[in-house]
Amino acid sequence: MELLYASCVGVLVSCGVFLILRSRTFPVVLGLTMFSYAVNLFLFSSGRLSLNQAAVLGTSTEYADPLPQALVLTAIVIGFAMTAFVVILSIRGRADLGNDHVDGQVPIKKKKKNKKVEV
């Protein structure tokens, strides 16, 4: 199961990074959101994976590690604040600049010779 968990984190990181590298603001915001899921899962797992363990004192003798949980809890909330900020920034950017490219301007494309793709 550890392998599966790590793979999930890896997939989220990959998808997040790919989206962050896109040229328009909205996919970048999605990428950041995805990346913060991955980061939260990663930080959470530093307390190791524990199935069916108690989160509240007095109910069991085995407890899940509370410290990463507390850290991740605030990370989720702050992550939301940051996502919100980036979203509004991108709206403001589009309103002020007239486009939603991350560089603030759409690059002028050089004309390319159309290659015929044979299928």
Partner: peptide, 9 residues
Amino acid sequence: LGIVIASIC
């Protein structure tokens, strides 16, 4: 990057 982070995890 995904592979690296997954491995670390």
